[in-house]
């Protein structure tokens, strides 16, 4: 296969305790650490391994969002991606818009495989892979914990509520990855230097010929209701008594 596209979303780092802005317009991002969505590092690692096995020629990382996402794309290049594409957009896009943008890049690059995270940990949507596959008219293998390629077929094991499901899909197609697919590599300093020379193209939504449409409106963000700290018991007898007291045992 020629090309694999990997989605890299810039998100608030998973270690940050997210706070809602007092005006309810979103969450605090000033001075907050931003990172590659953790699932996307796994997606990229998988693409790199496929390439290293000689089953693909080129790995292209793609991010749709603010120009600051260049940072995350550079990290992706340092991990080993060959090229990066940033689709610059300051406005907030809906998942369907982003899916249409990815579809336009798939067409432009004639990509045969798109590997994404199973969810972005900001919006927790878990939608892009499925939407892209739908508008592309191609298969989706979501929540992957094992991927095996053979010619133009992929056998994918998926983490589902019942356990592990295996499906076979014909490529081209979309795979979204779960946590246990692989362990992403660390970026080494020389790779960061090398990555500075790799191509990072910037495209606008207009250039791609995608029309963004009004969709679901974000009305307001609010903090969740907090659970209160409860009581501490001294020993197992105290625990049993407390449970009995609540009628739970």
């Amino acid at each position: 296969m020629q090309k694999i596209l990997v989605g890299l979303k810039r998100v608030v780092d998973y270690n940050v305790r997210v706070r809602v802005k007092s005006d309810g317009s979103g969450v605090e991002t000033d001075g907050v650490k931003m990172s590659i969505n953790p699932f996307d590092e796994i997606a990229l690692e998988e693409a790199l391994r496929i390439k290293e096995r000689g089953e693909a020629e080129e790995v292209i990382v793609v991010s749709v969002g603010a120009s600051e996402a260049q940072q995350q794309l550079r990290t992706g290049l340092a991990m080993g991606a060959d090229r990066a594409i940033l689709v610059d957009s300051q406005e907030s896009l809906t998942p369907l818009d982003v899916a249409r943008i990815f579809k336009a890049i798939v067409d432009r690059e004639s990509a045969e495989l798109v590997i994404l995270g199973k969810q972005a940990i900001d919006g927790d949507n878990s939608q892009l892979g499925q939407m892209l596959a739908a508008i592309w008219g191609r298969p989706q293998a979501t929540f992957a914990s094992k991927v095996e390629l053979a010619g133009n077929k992929a056998s994918v094991t998926r983490e589902v509520d019942a356990g592990l499901e295996t499906i076979e899909i014909d490529l081209p197609g979309v795979i979204s990855v779960d946590l246990r697919l692989n362990e992403p590599r660390y970026v080494k300093l020389p790779d960061i230097m090398k990555a500075k020379k790799k191509p990072l193209d910037q495209l606008s939504i207009e250039e791609l010929g995608v029309e963004v449409a009004a969709g679901i409106k974000e009305v307001t963000y609010e903090p969740p209701s907090e659970r209160e700290r409860g009581v501490m018991v001294d020993d197992v007898a105290g625990l049993v008594a407390a449970l009995k007291d609540k009628g739970l045992v």
Partner: peptide
């Protein structure tokens, strides 16, 4: 996992967004 896999595909085919 059943619904999360399926419903975004339904929505995109219908040309609408999906609420998770």
């Amino acid at each position: 996992t059943f619904g999360k896999d399926l419903m975004p595909r339904v929505a995109a085919l219908l040309g609408v967004n999906q609420i998770s």
